[in-house]
Amino acid sequence: MKMRYLLGITLVMGLISSCSTDYMDFKGGNFIQFSSSEEEVYTFAYFSSEKQKDTLNIGIMSVGEVVNYPRTIRFEQVTKEWEYIYDTEDPNKVVDSVYVDMKFPAKEGVHFEAFGGENNELILPANQNEINVQIVVKREDESLRTNARKLELRLLPSDDFKTGVPKNVVKKITISDKLERPTIWKDSDYTCSIYLGNWSEVKHRFMINATGEKWDNDFIKVYIKTGYQPTPEGLFLLRKIKKELEKYNADPTNNPPLKDENGHEVVFP
């Protein structure tokens, strides 16, 4: 009994002294993933025909310890995609899906220059946890003006890495020579719906012609989606576009009103 109380007292003292802790080192595996899960959309449509190639920088990062030796990253190009079958009565309801060959996959040598060697391998240098993969995209295929090509890269496990967060393991890149919807311009987005309205290729082209600006992700971030409302210059450019559209629609030789590729009248909010 005496021993039990002595143990109790020792336990209390132990609890008091246990309030301080030592820092622990990370222990775990090494993972590899893309730095961003955001889809990349690249189009040559903003540039003159002199521009036949461009370089995209795609970040890949490791999760885990940084080591003092180079490590191998493996990847593959995905050439299949899910095709969804919708309910005939409810077009938003998916009733089935099949994994089929991509209709417009990007082809190595035609739409982008080969990278990663024969084995589709990249090297993460020693003492680094991130690399930028430079992917050279090409404009030579004229069909890019009608159909964008999809370059989908998936990271694979290697001797050095397991794959990381699932949504960051695949990178989707669209290569195009026609106007593509900027990823930031979503029809459901509050700011976009108030100031830009629905996206269409014809509308986007009209905006570029009216203002001389690209209205791409970078432009929309700086001038439109800047806070609670666009910048003064952004508001001016939107006003200018509306004025130009009024002028266009007032000219009978233009067969007004201006309609988009889907047959809908081009309007701005």
Binding site: M1, K2, Y5, G8, I9, V12, I16
Partner: peptide
């Protein structure tokens, strides 16, 4: 003896304070 030990156990935090 048991009561003495209990008393000491209660008293110990007071010593800390």
């Amino acid at each position: 003896m048991r009561n003495l030990c209990l008393f000491l156990l209660i008293l110990l935090p007071l010593f800390c304070v």
